[in-house]
């Protein structure tokens, strides 16, 4: 159920777009209305989630560190794993965001002959890195559809991505890597019993959705051609707010676009929000300076303090009578 429901949900989305184009001719709905709506939901949703996270106080420094804290001058500090200033935090965050530093530390825990042993486990890190970077490169590559004069940066990325010059249109390496990585990430969830046990429909749905997007994209580029110039005319119409629907683009393109729109609209409500969440993790983005700086709890209310002076004023006579020393006579 946890696997089949998201799987058939993605199949239903594909059929919905296909039927909408093939039988009902709803090109305008799928090509203009839904993309604008999806982008709106995505942008506003991400802002809403981030602002909502921002309203949670972080009263204490809670970085998860794994190196020597800043201490006495002759003890060497690990400035990246246990940063005490902004520069260290920036480097630590950059490593986390760009190369998934904390996932790199992932270990495999196993019982061997009655003992707990920790082993090498980098496959998830590798597949995750391959997946995210391929996705980013593919996203950047798609900007050739949104810009009249495509900048040379995008052309260079594209030519590097297709440098093997296999077939025509040239095979993109990132297409292959993305498909392999997503397939691995899916197989990992169903093959490892522990991972399967904790996997929910919300884990499988984005995987199937991204797989659907990648497969429709690959089919469009290499197998069942769509009217690619028409696709760019449509995309340019959208970004210049003069939407038009060119004739004869092909239903496959609308399926691809619709799945992307679903991904964008689903984004703010899902685990995919780790895109923003990684920057907002208090276990990563805080400097470990608890011993240097006093962090005052923001929800502390003013407490009435009864000072010794006031105490002495209250009981001076009784204290004198009992022979206790007082500060003021």
């Amino acid at each position: 159920m946890k696997i089949l429901f998201p799987f058939f949900a993605v199949i239903a989305l594909i059929l919905l777009a296909f039927a909408g184009i093939k039988t009902a001719n709803m090109q305008f709905l799928f090509g203009v209305v839904i993309p604008y709506a999806a982008l709106g939901i995505f942008t506003l949703g991400v802002i809403y989630r981030v602002v909502k996270w921002g309203t949670s106080p972080v009263p204490f420094r809670i970085p998860t560190t794994c190196g020597q804290q800043k201490s006495l001058p002759w003890i060497k500090q690990n400035k990246i794993e246990n940063p005490s200033g902004s520069l260290g935090v920036i480097i630590r965050m950059a490593l986390e965001v760009l190369v998934f530093r904390s996932l790199f530390r992932n270990l495999k825990t196993e019982l061997k002959e009655g003992k707990v042993v920790y082993g090498w486990e980098k496959w998830l890190w590798m597949a995750g890195l391959a997946f995210h970077w391929s996705f980013l490169i593919i996203l950047v590559r798609h900007f050739r559809f949104f810009m009249q004069d495509v900048p040379s940066v995008i052309k260079i990325i594209e030519s590097l991505d297709s440098f093997l010059q296999v077939g025509v249109p040239l095979l993109y390496l990132t297409d292959i890597i993305l498909l392999l990585a997503v397939t691995y990430l899916f197989i990992r969830r169903v093959y490892l019993p522990q991972i399967k046990y904790i996997s929910l429909a919300a884990d499988y749905f984005p995987l199937f959705l991204i797989l659907g997007i990648a497969v429709t994209g690959v089919l469009m580029r290499y197998f069942f051609k769509v009217h690619i110039v028409g696709v760019k005319v449509l995309a340019m119409g959208l970004v210049s707010f003069t939407p038009s629907i060119p004739e004869g683009i092909g239903a496959l393109f609308y399926v691809h676009l619709f799945l992307i729109c679903v991904l964008f609209a689903y984004f703010p409500f899902s685990k995919l929000m780790h895109l923003a969440g990684v920057f907002m993790s208090p276990t990563r983005n805080l400097a470990n300076n608890s011993r240097e700086v006093r962090h005052i709890n923001p929800w502390n209310y003013p407490v009435h303090v009864h000072t010794y002076e006031e105490y002495e004023n209250d009981f001076r006579d009784k204290m004198k009578a009992a022979g206790l020393p007082v500060e003021k006579e």
């Binding site: 949104f146 810009m147 005319v233 210049s240």
Partner: peptide, 12 residues
Amino acid sequence: PFYNNIGKVNAK
């Protein structure tokens, strides 16, 4: 993509 295309000729 939106502000990048402001004022540019969008010729197919």
